[in-house]
């Protein structure tokens, strides 16, 4: 009497478990192909000639000599302007990153753990500006920079990039959830100055969120296109993203009219994509630990 229904539920349980495993495998499998296939294709593309790209099996490996060929075509494009673009991107990204960290970490800390008149207003404005489409400000920013004579200088990129409310909000959330204000209060009663409270209690705990802000800021700066596209007039000031755009418009790959006679075809374009993203990829490898385990886990440990 009792064993039959028990057996049925066990079988039902096994069946649902099978279905749910199947669903999981299907979701993860499809997403894996979706995310990884384009990456593999791009990595393999420079090993092939433009012709092989069309006719060979998409995931076939061409030859190393083709990479060399694509590389020399790419380097000879406008006398090695590629390296200038990379250097510019590095200057813009790192410069803004430093300014972002110097301003956003103390600000996020103060918003979370000190009390001052206007704190709530500042927090609300921060959230609103953070959510506000930043591209909607690019045009007024352009006119503002023009007003101050900064158009065409490195500062016209570095200074606006340094304003990173998202970073302030991340630091704020981190401190508000991970650091009990009683701890700071105790240090204050012991006579520690506000600066000491910040540097000796808050900062050591802030490592994961500093890494996180640095990561988002660097990646955002490196990949930013709209502002440099508008404010930088000459090719030797372009960051790599705007440079890629110039490469794209000088290639006959998608646009047979443009770039006829130039050596920039699909393999060169794919190689330029790989070169352009390498720094971000490297940064990610180093931030991954902070990103994956540190981000919110640090909050409960602290």
């Amino acid at each position: 009497m009792t064993s039959a229904p028990l057996g049925r539920t066990a079988r039902n349980g096994r069946a649902t478990r099978f279905v749910s495993t199947l669903v999981i495998v299907l979701i993860l499998g499809l997403l894996l192909v979706f995310f990884v296939l384009p990456v593999i294709w791009v990595l393999l593309a420079p090993t092939k000639t433009a012709d092989e790209l069309v006719h060979d099996w998409p995931l076939a490996f061409g030859s190393f000599s083709n990479i060399g060929l694509a590389w020399s075509h790419l380097v000879s494009f406008q006398n090695g302007v590629l390296f200038v673009w990379l250097k510019n991107s590095a200057i813009y990204s790192v410069g803004s990153l430093v300014l972002t960290l110097l301003t956003s970490v103390p600000a996020g800390y103060a918003l979370a753990l000190t009390k001052f008149r206007g704190r709530k207003v500042l927090l609300t404005i921060t959230l609103l500006v953070m959510i506000m489409p930043s591209a909607s400000l690019v045009l007024p920013l352009f006119l503002e920079l023009n007003l101050f004579g900064l158009i065409g200088t490195a500062w016209s990129i570095i200074l606006p990039f340094s304003f990173f409310p998202f970073g302030v909000y991340l630091v704020y959330i981190y401190f508000a959830t991970s650091l009990p204000s009683e701890m700071l209060e105790a240090a204050r009663i012991d006579g520690a100055s506000e600066w000491r409270v910040f540097t000796s209690i808050a900062l050591p705990l802030a490592k994961p969120v500093v890494a996180l802000v640095a990561f988002f800021s660097f990646v955002g700066n490196w990949n930013n296109f709209f502002l440099p596209y508008l404010v930088l007039p000459s090719s030797d000031q372009f960051p790599i993203q705007v440079g890629l755009n110039q490469l794209l418009s000088s290639t006959p790959s998608f646009n047979p009219v443009a770039g006829a006679g130039l050596n920039i075809t699909s393999p060169e374009l794919a190689l330029s994509v790989i070169i352009a993203i390498l720094p971000v990829l490297i940064v990610f490898l180093f931030s991954q630990r902070a990103l994956v385990s540190g981000m919110l886990a640090g909050a409960t440990k602290g």
Binding site: L99, L102, T103, S104, P106, A107, Y109, A110, L111, T114, K115, F116, R117, R119, L122, I125, T126, V129, M132, S136, L137, L139, P140, L141, L143, E144, L159, P160, S162, F163, P165, V168, R188, E194, W195, F198
Partner: peptide, 29 residues
């Protein structure tokens, strides 16, 4: 009160950026 003054010092750098590249362009728009 001390924390209040320090709070202003801590947010000052960010507030300059906020004013220059957040609020000013918005008002300008």
């Amino acid at each position: 009160r001390r924390a209040g003054l320090a709070g202003y010092a801590f947010v000052s750098g960010y507030v300059v950026f906020l004013a220059a590249f957040g609020i000013f362009p918005t008002l300008y728009a």
